[in-house]
Design a protein around this nucleic acid. Structure first.
Length: 575
RNA sequence: AGGGGAUUGGUGUAACGGUAGCACGAAUGGUUCUGGUCCAUUUAGUCGGGGUUCGAAUCCCUGAUCCCCUGCCA
């Protein structure tokens, strides 16, 4: 790449800011970001956008990105997710090196900071019930009222807080609150809860604690402690930023850069930048709704190939490269976008076209007998593995007297633009011979059950020496050599662009696509029999497929990743 | 007594007061042993109304619409 070809690379607004900061030396040229998932569920494509920004920005500016589990609520978090999340991020191609952290590792430090705020008169222990606190908070349009415990002496709060930690009080009996402003128009600043009592075993810290920090108190401190420079998150945390700022400023009150003051050295104040999430047409992304799909049995599990979870997409056969390309095309902005599923499909096809070996597989077989082909003769023909990649080489495909072709590739009564097989017409069998249909065999109900054709031996390999052309080329498979394969023709999970858009009283489950997981037995050329799970290929003229983990040696199970573009379907639809 | 954000072709995203561009989609044509790929052409946009300015998607005022905020969730 030469510099003089540079169409000036256009940066999204976050990279703009980071680039500016690097130029101005705001953080000494340092860039530290982080991805802070709560280990309480599986990651989906929306998360992949977020951590793609976090890891991507760090990588592009020579910085680093931490993976930090935001495990401040032991009642909702599980070890299993810690492992699953790491697996998914790695699969997407990102790496945090040794920078794997847990918010719970900082509980001790946060506890010290909390006591400091109490001493400074900036936090207090509140004895009100949850209900009283809720009512005291006021509403969006009504100011809150101050807690009767708000002005209790710092010494008393300190004592109570330490005893909260000591386990003297039951869950829900007391909380530590920040002393900010009960009349703030920003609800987050109406004396938010910093600590609650939770006698629960934590997946990472065990029983070491019975008080746990709230997200809002903890999050900014986690970033600060880790030396994060740019704290990138989604839009809904914008309203919380003033609170994070307040907490850091409160801790820094009385601190100095050289640590000479009463409270020691100032702590880092990372810059939070918010960006918008996105929606994908014909799918759902909210954790709650995904859970409903899984638990309601509408899908087979969190790795159902129709789900936008990273596990689901992985099983479906989506490639991380395509997903990354997709996310980069989605971009980063402050507007909640609805991205066309078609864009994702484009990225998938674009990548798979370059890397997926071709194979012939017949999904809906119709038997063809080549009547002038010797009864017990068979031969192999050379086929190109990938016309987009010469290095993929060629393979030998067996041919014999009885074949399967796609039922849709034959019509007795074809419309004008039908280039495929019909009685009396000649087509090419890909890499094999020209054939002409002579007879149609039907059952008692008049259904076509078999075709009789003749072949032209001179066209071996698929070219006519006399130069005559045929309009259609069909894929096929030798009947006696074909491997019957369970093949799952996955399609979009919902029939509606926005599945959550339902009439009064309806449910998003009404929009479920009943055709989204049709299974057929495809006849596939014999080469595929010994492929391991996770092998991707293109069924020529049809789509891209991957062998599912359910595959057994000799018995592959295929998942459809995405269909090929189908301009014949468009012509048909137009009539 | 409410506050915080946002709005550019059908979709996504650029243009930091100076030619509204790119991509997906759609349409048309070409190439082709995949009705795939590839190539070419076309399509279509600054939320409305005022203002500032030589010049506004960009700045100001105003209106509309959408999103977020009343967990001891994150």
């Amino acid at each position: 790449m030469t510099n003089d070809t540079n169409e000036k690379e256009s940066l999204d607004f976050i990279r703009h800011i980071v680039a500016e900061d690097c130029k101005s030396g705001k953080w000494g040229g340092e860039v530290v970001t982080r991805f802070p998932p709560e280990p309480n569920g599986y990651l989906h494509i929306g998360h992949a956008k977020a951590f793609g920004i976090d890891f991507g920005v760090a990588a592009e500016f020579g910085g680093r990105c931490h993976l930090r589990f935001d495990d401040t609520n032991p009642t909702k978090e599980e070890r299993e997710y810690v492992d699953a999340i790491q697996e998914d991020i790695r699969w997407m191609g990102w790496d945090w090196g040794e920078h794997l952290y847990y918010a719970s590792d900082y509980f001790g430090q946060m506890y010290e900071y909390a006591k400091e705020l109490i001493r400074k008169g900036l936090a207090y222990v509140d004895d009100q019930t949850p209900e009283q606190i809720r009512r005291g908070r006021g509403t969006l349009k009504q100011p809150g009222v101050e807690s009767p415990y708000r002005d209790r002496p710092a010494e008393e709060s300190l004592d109570l807080f330490q005893r909260m930690k000591g386990g003297e009080f039951p869950d829900g009996s007391r909380v530590l609150r920040a002393r900010i402003d009960m009349t703030s128009p920003n609800m987050n600043l109406r004396d938010p809860v910093m600590y609650r009592i939770l006698h629960a075993t934590h997946p990472h810290t065990g029983d070491a604690w019975c008080i746990y920090p709230m997200y809002d108190w903890a999050h900014g401190l986690e970033d600060s402690i880790e030396g994060v420079t740019h704290s990138l998150c989604s839009l809904e945390f914008e309203n919380h930023r003033p609170l994070y700022d307040w907490f850091i400023d409160a801790i820094n009150q009385g601190r100095t850069d050289d640590g000479s003051g009463e409270w020691g050295k100032t702590i880092r104040h990372p810059q939070q930048i918010e960006f918008a999430r996105f929606n994908l047409t014909y799918t759902v992304m909210s954790k709650r709704v995904l859970r409903e799909l899984v638990e309601g049995g509408h899908v087979s599990g969190w790795d159902d190939p129709r789900l936008p979870t990273l596990r689901g997409m992985r099983r479906r056969g989506y490639t991380p490269q395509a997903l990354r390309e997709f996310l980069s095309r989605v971009g980063v902005a402050r507007f909640v976008s609805t991205v066309d599923l078609g864009l994702l499909e484009f990225c998938l096809r674009d990548h798979l076209n370059k890397v997926a070996p071709r194979v012939m597989g017949v999904l809906n077989p119709l038997k063809v007998v080549i009547t002038n082909y010797p009864e017990d003769q068979e031969e192999t023909l050379e086929a190109i593995n990938n016309p987009e990649d010469e290095s993929a080489g060629t393979r030998q495909v067996p041919f014999s007297r009885e074949l399967y072709i796609e039922r849709e590739d034959f019509m007795e009564d074809p419309p004008k633009k039908f280039f495929r097989l019909t009685v009396g017409k000649e087509v090419r069998l890909r890499y094999a011979y020209f054939i002409t249909c002579t007879d149609v065999v039907k059952d008692d109900d008049g259904n076509v059950v078999e075709l009789h054709c003749t072949y032209d031996p001179a066209t071996r390999g698929g070219d006519a020496p006399d130069g005559r052309k045929v309009k259609g080329t069909l894929h096929w498979v030798s009947a006696k050599h074909a491997v019957p394969c369970e093949t799952r023709l996955y399609d979009r999970l919902f029939t509606a662009e926005d599945p959550m858009d339902v009439p009064e009283g309806g449910s998003f489950t009404d929009n479920l696509n009943s055709e989204s997981d049709k299974t057929v037995t495809a006849m596939v050329e014999p080469d595929v029999a010994d492929k391991p799970a996770g092998w991707r290929c293109q069924f020529e003229r049809n789509g891209y497929y991957i062998t599912d983990p359910d595959s057994q040696l000799g018995k592959p199970v295929f998942n459809r990743i995405v269909t090929l573009r189908d301009s014949w379907a468009k012509i048909k639809k137009k009539g």
